[in-house]
Design a protein around this nucleic acid. Structure first.
Lengths: 150, 150
DNA sequence: TATTGTTATACTCTATAACTATA
DNA sequence: TATAGTTATAGAGTATAACAATA
């Protein structure tokens, strides 16, 4: 039994979640390195897979990134034939973004490796907690996406 | 029911956790601002409260920060009489760190406000999930602290 | 020589503002 | 004029290396 257990306040949520996020990212970095992908590169590939995106600004918004920040990422991915940018015929200012088959393959295999590593993290949880944890995480993550970040 | 639910892979853990951490921090920033505290300042006050720390290096390690990074933070907190640094008589290289009563008071009131805000996040969870979520989060957070970050 | 705290410097990430091309 | 994309610049945050004091 803990000596001062009664006085111990619970740790702040952020104080647990932020370092956990960092540790997860650090754990995934070797996978990305092995495929020559940056974190943002992978995020972009993932976001394009789920929903076809019609403008770079929309893509940036979807992944909570600055629109200027993803440009070099897109340049790199395009130069490696993982995605294509072509002007929208209806509005030639906009760029239609789509994954190439190769981009899709890369995204899938990286995601598989990453999620396999994540499984080993989830393996630390009690079986009864695991599903509940993922459900809660989805709920909070959705709430976070909706919360207005100035 | 979701159209393509069967094909939909679960989002990466990191892709949910990292933005959630950012949103929590953004949500807490106004509280810190109101008390003139930086995020690291608050982290230091919190860490000092829980366990008395005998060296700055130990403190830095405890909060997963670079030892050089907390120095200006300590300077600021000390100048505001929230903590004191005094040379350890047994090893005058080391600085014994302790909160002043004022530092303790500030830490407590900021923590109360922050945790009150966090409660409104947790309020989104199903009652049955809440306890499980916090337990799982503690488990993973502990694991993250142990994981060796190069 | 090794360690604690510190300072100075460099590097990475991110945001802001200005430019182009289309509309 | 307004918007999509782009480029250039500046700022914050972080890490690396070098230093002084003490052991």
């Amino acid at each position: 039994m803990n000596a001062a257990a009664e006085d111990e306040p619970r740790p702040d949520l952020a104080a647990m979640i932020v370092p956990l996020g960092r540790a997860l990212m650090a754990d995934e970095q070797p996978v990305l390195d092995a495929h020559g992908l940056s974190m943002w590169g992978y995020v972009v590939l993932s976001a394009l897979g789920e929903t076809p995106v019609r403008t770079q600004a929309a893509l940036a918004a979807a992944i909570n990134a600055d629109k200027t920040r993803i440009i070099t990422v897109l340049d790199d991915l395009e130069s490696r034939d993982l995605l294509v940018r072509r002007p929208d015929p209806k509005d030639r200012r906009a760029r239609l973004l789509s994954l190439t088959p190769e981009g899709r393959r890369l995204r899938d295999s990286v995601r598989d490796e990453i999620q396999r590593r994540e499984e080993s993290w989830l393996g630390r949880l009690a079986d009864a907690d695991r599903e509940s944890f993922l459900r809660s995480l989805r709920t909070l993550s959705d709430a976070a996406r909706r919360s207005p970040e100035p």
